[in-house]
Amino acid sequence: MESYQQHPVPAAADLVNWDLAAGTAATLVSAGPKMTAKEIRGAVADLRARADEAVTHVHRITGLEAARDLRDSEVLVVDRASWAKANSRSFAALMNPALENLARTHPEQLKGANTALSGTLTGAQLGAVLAFLSSKVLGQYDPFAAQTPGGPAGGRLLLVAPNIITLERELNVDPADFRLWVCLHEQTHRVQFAAAPWLRGHMVEQIGLLTNGLMDKAQTLSERLGHAAKTLASPDGRAALTGGNDDDVPRRPMDIMSLLQDPADKERMSHLTAVMSLLEGHANVVMDAVDARIVPSVKTIRQRFNARGKSHGWLDRFFRQIMGLDAKMRQYKDGSKFVRSVVDRVGMEGFNRVWEGPQNLPTEAEIHNPSLWMTRMGL
Rank of each mutant, 00 (worst) to 15 (best):
residue 7 H to D: 14
residue 9 V to S: 13
residue 12 A to K: 07
residue 13 A to N: 04
residue 14 D to T: 11
residue 15 L to F: 04
residue 18 W to A: 02
residue 22 A to Y: 02
residue 28 L to W: 10
residue 29 V to T: 15
residue 29 V to I: 13
residue 36 T to E: 07
residue 39 E to N: 13
residue 41 R to V: 07
residue 43 A to Q: 01
residue 43 A to I: 00
residue 47 L to C: 08
residue 49 A to V: 03
residue 50 R to D: 04
residue 51 A to C: 14
residue 54 A to F: 03
residue 56 T to V: 10
residue 63 G to S: 00
residue 64 L to W: 07
residue 64 L to R: 01
residue 65 E to I: 05
residue 67 A to S: 06
residue 68 R to E: 04
residue 69 D to L: 04
residue 72 D to V: 05
residue 72 D to M: 03
residue 80 R to Q: 14
residue 85 K to F: 07
residue 86 A to S: 11
residue 92 A to I: 00
residue 94 L to K: 08
residue 94 L to N: 10
residue 95 M to G: 07
residue 97 P to M: 08
residue 97 P to W: 08
residue 106 H to N: 14
residue 108 E to L: 13
residue 109 Q to T: 04
residue 112 G to M: 01
residue 115 T to N: 10
residue 116 A to Q: 13
residue 118 S to E: 13
residue 122 T to I: 04
residue 122 T to F: 02
residue 122 T to P: 00
residue 122 T to H: 02
residue 123 G to Q: 02
residue 123 G to H: 00
residue 125 Q to A: 14
residue 126 L to R: 05
residue 128 A to Q: 13
residue 134 S to I: 06
residue 135 S to E: 15
residue 136 K to H: 10
residue 136 K to F: 01
residue 139 G to N: 06
residue 139 G to S: 08
residue 140 Q to E: 15
residue 140 Q to M: 12
residue 141 Y to A: 04
residue 143 P to M: 01
residue 143 P to H: 02
residue 146 A to D: 11
residue 146 A to K: 10
residue 147 Q to S: 11
residue 148 T to A: 11
residue 150 G to Q: 10
residue 152 P to I: 03
residue 156 R to I: 02
residue 156 R to V: 03
residue 158 L to P: 07
residue 164 I to K: 00
residue 165 I to Y: 06
residue 166 T to M: 10
residue 168 E to T: 07
residue 173 V to A: 15
residue 173 V to H: 03
residue 179 R to D: 09
residue 179 R to N: 11
residue 182 V to P: 00
residue 183 C to I: 01
residue 184 L to Y: 00
residue 185 H to R: 05
residue 188 T to I: 03
residue 189 H to P: 05
residue 193 F to C: 09
residue 193 F to L: 09
residue 196 A to H: 08
residue 198 W to I: 07
residue 199 L to M: 14
residue 199 L to K: 09
residue 199 L to N: 10
residue 213 G to M: 05
residue 220 T to A: 13
residue 222 S to Q: 14
residue 227 H to F: 09
residue 238 R to L: 13
residue 239 A to H: 03
residue 239 A to W: 01
residue 242 T to I: 01
residue 242 T to Q: 02
residue 256 I to M: 15
residue 256 I to K: 05
residue 256 I to E: 11
residue 259 L to N: 07
residue 262 D to N: 15
residue 263 P to N: 13
residue 266 K to N: 11
residue 269 M to C: 07
residue 270 S to E: 10
residue 276 M to L: 14
residue 279 L to C: 12
residue 281 G to E: 01
residue 281 G to S: 03
residue 285 V to D: 06
residue 291 D to G: 15
residue 291 D to Q: 09
residue 293 R to W: 02
residue 296 P to E: 01
residue 299 K to V: 12
residue 301 I to C: 03
residue 303 Q to F: 06
residue 304 R to G: 06
residue 308 R to N: 11
residue 310 K to M: 09
residue 310 K to N: 10
residue 317 R to Q: 15
residue 327 A to P: 00
residue 327 A to R: 12
residue 328 K to W: 12
residue 328 K to F: 12
residue 328 K to P: 02
residue 329 M to I: 08
residue 331 Q to L: 01
residue 337 K to R: 15
residue 339 V to L: 00
residue 340 R to L: 14
residue 343 V to N: 12
residue 347 G to R: 04
residue 348 M to H: 04
residue 358 P to K: 08
residue 359 Q to F: 05
residue 360 N to I: 00
residue 364 E to Y: 08
residue 366 E to A: 08
residue 368 H to E: 14
residue 371 S to V: 11
residue 374 M to D: 06
residue 374 M to T: 11
